[in-house]
Nucleic acid binder design. Structure first.
Lengths: 206, 206
DNA sequence: TACAACAAGAACTAATAGAGAACAAATTAT
DNA sequence: ATAATTTGTTCTCTATTAGTTCTTGTTGTA
C-alpha cells in the first residue's frame, strides 16, 4: 500500500514517462514535482522499489524504470477507476486545473483505447453543437487532428479553448459553434492541439 | 448490526471512494459528511473495522480502505456495475425494446440513487436542449414529475416521447425543444410518466 | 432513570514529508 | 588515464500531516 506521495510519484511516472527521451534523473523529477531535495525523493523511490513498482536501480544513472507489473496496473486503473477529471476549460483562458483530481467512471462508448481525460466546459462557445456550460467532455490526448474535428487547442501557449478546427497549409481556423461568435484565424504555429473531443456528458440533477 | 451513523459512513465510502485520488483522511470525511470532530468519526470507523467492513488502519495515514467483503456487499446491493440499456425512444413511437439488453457504466454524477435506465434518443425533438439524435439519456424511473422537468411520457399507452412537461389540473402539455415543433396538449389521463431525465451522454467516435 | 448513540474539541503520538549536507559511484570531458 | 561533473545514496534534523485517545455534554429511547 502506497503513501500519498508515493502514489503521486507513481502517477507522474506513468503519465510522464513518454515525455522523456531517456529515463529522468532524480533532479529532473524533483523539478517537475516541485521538490527541492533529491534525498527526499529518493526515499519515495525506495518505497516504490520495495512495492515492486520500480526496477531496482543499483546506482545506475537514469535507471528509473517502472516494472511490467506497474505498467500493467496503470492500464487496468483506467478501467477500474475511470478517467481523471483534471480541470475546466473556458474560452480565452488557460485550462484551470483543479486541486483534488477526481475520477469519473465513463462508459466504454464515450472513450477510446488511447489515453483520455475529462474537462468541464465553461462558457457557451460550443452551444450549437449541443455542448453547454457545465457539461463534461472526454478528450483523447493527441497532438494532431483531422479537419472538422473538435479539439482542445492551446493558442499562443496561453489560451485553451474547445473549438472545431480547420487546418490549411498557411492558416489554422478555430470555429466556435455559436452564431454570435466568429471563427478565429491563426498561423499554424500559433495553435497547438492538446486533444480531440470523443465524448460529452451532462447532468440534469438539481 | 450497524448503527445509523455507521451505515451512513459505509454508504459514503462505497459511493464516494472513487472521487478521491488518495484515500480520504478523517478530516476530509468529516468535511464531506458535515461533522466537526475527527474523534467522533473515528469511533464510527472503529465500529466498521470490527464489523469487518474496513481494513484495520494501524495509524496508517490515508489508510481507510473498505475490505473486499464490504465492496462485494456494495456491488450486490448496487445491483450491477452499470445501468441497463433498454432501448431507443423516438418521438411518436413506443419505446423500442432491444432484444439483448446491454449495460453501460455511467458516472455517479449522471444518475441518482434511485433505479435508473438508459435510452437512446432518436429524432430531433429536443435539439434546442442539446439532446441530439443518437445521444444516450439516463432516466430515473418514476411516475410523477414536477413542472418543467424533462420526462419520458407515454401518450395514449402507445407513443413514448422525451419532452418537457407542464401539468395543470385539466391539461398536460408536452413541450418539444425544437423551434419547428409545437407543444402538444393532452388530458391528464392520456399521459403517463415513465421516468425523468437525469443525465445525457454523446459519443463523437466515427 | 438509565443507557446508548452521537457530537465536539483538546491533547497526544506516530507516520509522512521535506531540506540540506556529505559522500560515492557512474559518466563525461580533458 | 586523469580530472571534472553528474547523479544516486545515505544521513541528520525539522516540519507537517493525520490517526488515536481522552473528557465532556447532548439527545433520543426503553
Amino acid at each position: 500500500m502506497l503513501t500519498r506521495k508515493q502514489q503521486e510519484l507513481y502517477n507522474f511516472l506513468l503519465t510522464q514517462q513518454d515525455n522523456f527521451i531517456h529515463p529522468p534523473t532524480l533532479d529532473e523529477i524533483c523539478l517537475a514535482m516541485n521538490l527541492k531535495s533529491r534525498g527526499s525523493l529518493h526515499k519515495h523511490i525506495q518505497g516504490l522499489v520495495s512495492a515492486g513498482l520500480i526496477e531496482p536501480l543499483n546506482r545506475k544513472q537514469r535507471g528509473i524504470r517502472l516494472t511490467k507489473q506497474a505498467i500493467q496496473m496503470g492500464k487496468e486503473k483506467d478501467d477500474a477507476d475511470g478517467l481523471p477529471y483534471v480541470g475546466a476549460i473556458a474560452a480565452g483562458k488557460p485550462i484551470e486545473a483543479i486541486t483534488d483530481i477526481k475520477y469519473m467512471k465513463v462508459p466504454e462508448q464515450l472513450k477510446t483505447d488511447k489515453p483520455c481525460y475529462i474537462l468541464q466546459v465553461k462558457g457557451d462557445s460550443m452551444i450549437d453543437e449541443g455542448i453547454f456550460d457545465g457539461d463534461w467532455v472526454v478528450i483523447e490526448q493527441r497532438s494532431v487532428a483531422r479537419n472538422g474535428e473538435i479539439v482542445v487547442a492551446l493558442v499562443e501557449k496561453s489560451e485553451a479553448t474547445l473549438k472545431r478546427i480547420e487546418q490549411y497549409p498557411h492558416e489554422t481556423v478555430l470555429i466556435p459553434a455559436n452564431k454570435n461568435m466568429q471563427p478565429m484565424h491563426y498561423k499554424p504555429n500559433q495553435v497547438e492541439i492538446q486533444g480531440v473531443l470523443v465524448g460529452q456528458m451532462r447532468s440534469y440533477l438539481h
